[in-house]
Amino acid sequence: MIEAIQIWLSAALVIWIWSFVYKDNYLYRLAQHIFLGAAAGYSIGISLDSLNKTALVPLAKSPTTNMHLIIPIIIGLLFFFKYSRRYYWVARYGVGIALAVGTALAFRTAPMANIIRQVNAVLLPLWTPDPVKTLNNWIHVVITLSALVYFIFTVTPRVVEGRPTITYRVYDAVLRIGIYGMMVAFGATLANTIMTRLAFFISMNIQYLQPYPLESLSAIILVAIAILFAMRRARAG
């Protein structure tokens, strides 16, 4: 019995979520609120677990050496001050520490990961015995440099009335190469993302819907009624 409910519920939730693509309706709203409640509870559960593992268990094991773990717990509790009209600012301490740690993680590794490794990857030989390779390396370098120019915000040639200067024309051409180079890159990523999503979409059907045609069909009929109802209401204003 429980298993039958489980199967029907999973199939129905999948179909009801998808129904949003056509029109918002009561069954999507139901699935959405079930999801929200379950996720919020899950998130609290996982947080309690992490709190337990990182702070409470070590504190219980050796209270004297781990006494300091009380500090983040107290700072975390300060978040509740956001509800206070007078002491709203107390919540800032928790926000500040979380933000500082997060920023520090990115800040200290940025020069190596975002600059040096990227620069190194562009240092390709521009004259090789293989003309195709030479051309590819040139394209690589030109796109990278042009797109870098695109991101320069505070040094741009002045726009003049009438005929544009040569500097401006060169700048404009470089900018275009940069933009179009990035668009090609975006297109490639887009295609790969679509492919993975499509594969996932198919596997979803195989897992939740195809083996259970009756369950799926009943969920579809229900959602069709919900959509019709939503359309009628929309028409009625």
Binding site: I115, N120, V122, L123, L145, V149, I152, F153, T154
Partner: peptide, 18 residues
């Protein structure tokens, strides 16, 4: 403008490296 200095630095490093 500090960010732009970084981009100029990257461009210089790339050109120099090449």
């Amino acid at each position: 403008r500090g960010q732009d200095v970084g981009k100029l630095l990257s461009i210089i490093l790339i050109v120099l490296g090449l």
